[in-house]
Amino acid sequence: MDESREIALTQMRKSVEKLGSSTQNYGDRTLMRFLIARTMDPDKAAKMFVQWKKWRAALVPLGFIPDSEVQDELEARKIYLQGLSKDGYPVMIVKSRKHFPSKDQLQFKKFVVHLLDKTIASSFKGREIGNEKLIGVLDLQQITYKNIDARALITGFQFLQAYYPERLAKCYLLNMPGFFVSVWRMVSYFLEKATLEKIVIVSNEDEKREFIRDIGEEALPEEYGGRAKLVAIQDVILTPMEN
């Protein structure tokens, strides 16, 4: 790590302490994600980190969201976890046609945390490093107006921006119907430039080939041009992490 980053990390740790919190138990790579998200500004990164800790303590007091707390959302079997891309990123696929707007927004927020945490954890090799990223695939094939849920999309992306900084490697949007374009335009209004730059709308054969190449046939299900089988996220069993 170069000297400027070391200095920024030291300043961030001091700023976190001034805000009445602590960076104890958090490694440099975790803190660096917050610094990168705040253009290497130690004070802004410290504020973001402290807000993240408070948010986790309030919404995720156990440190994770168990299946039992999000059972209604899991029963739809709309989220799939496909192993690692060729670059080592876990691949999460969302089948939008199986999603319907939730009547319980708190449970939906917990569901977003559950799936992001589990997807990230699926890339751990024994223990968390702190800078693991994920790939999201949003499949819009066969959606109808009943499946449209702008609030859910905004919640998911805002959670990534505010509470999972630098965790998103890339997000692919597949099979976008014409009527969804205006919805996506509205959702995009709430996204930061750095997030938008990681989103790829796959709309032609060349882009589809690049999508398959980026993820790799080993992780990509057959229906998307790969060789894998779809695996629902609740069917993925993770081994306990080392301390």
Score class of each variant (00 low, 15 high):
V112E: 00
S15F: 01
E6R: 14
L238R: 06
G63E: 06
F108H: 15
M48I: 02
D87N: 15
L134C: 09
M241H: 11
E197I: 09
D117G: 10
V16F: 04
K54M: 11
S15C: 12
T239Y: 07
Y189L: 15
K198F: 07
M12Q: 04
F190C: 11
F34P: 00
E6V: 14
L59D: 06
M176Q: 13
G136H: 09
I93G: 00
E205T: 13
R185Y: 11
P165D: 03
E222L: 03
R56T: 09
G178W: 10
S123M: 14
A45K: 07
I129R: 15
G130C: 09
F157S: 03
I148Y: 08
I120D: 03
I201Y: 07
Q107I: 14
Q11P: 08
D87K: 15
K133Q: 15
A45S: 02
F34R: 02
E166K: 00
T119P: 00
R127M: 13
L191C: 02
V70S: 05
F108T: 08
G156L: 09
F179Q: 07
K229C: 04
F108V: 01
L140I: 11
E205S: 14
N25Y: 11
E242L: 13
S188Q: 13
P101V: 12
Y89L: 02
G136S: 13
G27A: 05
I36Q: 14
I215F: 00
R227A: 09
E222F: 04
L115T: 13
V91D: 00
